[in-house]
C-alpha cells in the first residue's frame, strides 16, 4: 500500500490550514511578548517625558519641601542609603553564615533542619507587607525602637532580604565542586577551614550576585516601610540611623499624593533616579555573574 493520499486535494487543503494555524500561533507569541515590552516602553517613556526636565543639581541635592520647585530627592536618598546600610550589615553576614551552615554542616534529615529550610523558602514568598506588620509589632511595639527610623526600616527589610541571600548563597556553595573540599581536607584542613578558606571564596561571586539582587529589591520596597511609619516629612537629611527618615520609593509615594500638579514632575524625576540606581545594581549583578561564572 503505497501512500499517495497526501496528494489528494482535501489532504493538501488540510495541510495548508495547519500551516496557517502554525503561523497564527507564532504571531500570537510575538504579539504577547511585544505587548509586554510596549507596556514597559510606554511606562518608561511617560516617566522620562514628565520627569527628565525636573532633574537638576538642586533636585539631586535638595530635601523634601512643601514647595515643589524647591523639593529635592537627596533627603530620601540618604534615608535609603542608611536603611540599605542597616539591611546589608544584618542580612549579608547572617544570610551567608546560614547558607554555609545549611549547605555544609547541618545534619541531614533532622526535623528542625527541615523546618529551617521550609521557613526560608516560605519567607521568600511571604508578601512584603507582612514583614511590615512584624516590624511594627516586634521592633516598635515590643522593643520600642525609634519609629520611622532607618534602623527599624533596615531591620525589617533585612528579614525580608535574608532568605534571598540564603537561597542564592546555598546555590553558589552547591556549585563549588566537592573535589575542592576533598583537596583541602586531604592536606589536613578541618572541615571549618576547608569551607572558610576554599569553598566560600569560590562561592563569593555567586553570593554577591544574589545579595545585590536582594538589595535592589529592598531598595524598591515601600509597603513594609509604610507599616513602620517611614513616611516622615524630611526637610533635612537624616543624620543617623535612629533619626526619622523617608526612603526614595516612599518619597515617590508621598509626592504622588500631593494635590499640587507641580509635584508630578518631581515624582517622575524621583522615579527616574530610582530606576537608574536599580538598573545600575542589576547591571553590576549581571556583570559579576558573567565575569566570575566558572564552569567546573
Amino acid at each position: 500500500m503505497i501512500n499517495s493520499s497526501w496528494q489528494a486535494p482535501e489532504m493538501q487543503r488540510r495541510l495548508a490550514r495547519r500551516h496557517a494555524a502554525e503561523r497564527r500561533f507564532k504571531a500570537l507569541g510575538l504579539v504577547a511578548i511585544a505587548t509586554s515590552l510596549l507596556f514597559l516602553a510606554f511606562l518608561l517613556f511617560t516617566m522620562l517625558r514628565q520627569g527628565l526636565g525636573g532633574i537638576d543639581w538642586a533636585f539631586l541635592t535638595g530635601s523634601d519641601s512643601t514647595d515643589a520647585t524647591v523639593a529635592g530627592v537627596w533627603g530620601a536618598a540618604k534615608g535609603s542609603i542608611l536603611t540599605m546600610g542597616v539591611t546589608l550589615a544584618l542580612s549579608f553576614p547572617l544570610g551567608v553564615l546560614a547558607a554555609v551552615y545549611l549547605e555544609e554542616f547541618a545534619p541531614k534529615g533532622r526535623r528542625w533542619v527541615e523546618w529551617v529550610e521550609v521557613s526560608i523558602n516560605n519567607l521568600a514568598a511571604v508578601p512584603s507587607i507582612i514583614f511590615g506588620l512584624l516590624g511594627l509589632a516586634v521592633f516598635i511595639n515590643v522593643m520600642h525602637l525609634p519609629r520611622s527610623s532607618p534602623l527599624v526600616g533596615g531591620m525589617t527589610l533585612a528579614l525580608m532580604t535574608m532568605p534571598v541571600i540564603v537561597i542564592s548563597g546555598r546555590n553558589a556553595i552547591k556549585a563549588v565542586p566537592p573535589s575542592i573540599r576533598d583537596a583541602a581536607l586531604a592536606v589536613g584542613a578541618s572541615p571549618v577551614q576547608a569551607v572558610f578558606h576554599h569553598v566560600l571564596p569560590l562561592a563569593l561571586p555567586g553570593i554577591l550576585t544574589g545579595t545585590i539582587i536582594g538589595m535592589a529589591r529592598a531598595l524598591g520596597e515601600t509597603a513594609p516601610l509604610l507599616m513602620i511609619g517611614m513616611r516622615a516629612f524630611v526637610a533635612t537629611p537624616p543624620g543617623g540611623i535612629t533619626d526619622p527618615a523617608s526612603v526614595m520609593p516612599m518619597q515617590i509615594f508621598l509626592w504622588s499624593d500631593e494635590i499640587d500638579q507641580a509635584f508630578v514632575q518631581n515624582t517622575s524625576a524621583a522615579i527616574i533616579v530610582l530606576l537608574v540606581l536599580l538598573m545600575a545594581m542589576n547591571g553590576l549583578a549581571i556583570y559579576l555573574r558573567n565575569k566570575f561564572e566558572t564552569r567546573w
Binding site: 547572617l94 546560614a98 528542625w112 529551617v116
Partner: peptide, 22 residues
C-alpha cells in the same frame, strides 16, 4: 559552628515572630 547555627535559626525565629505577632 554555634554562630552558623544561630544564623540559620533566624529564619525560624522570623517565621515564628510573624505567626506569634499576627
Amino acid at each position: 559552628l554555634m554562630t552558623l547555627l544561630v544564623a540559620s535559626l533566624i529564619a525560624i525565629l522570623t517565621t515564628a515572630g510573624i505567626v506569634i505577632s499576627l
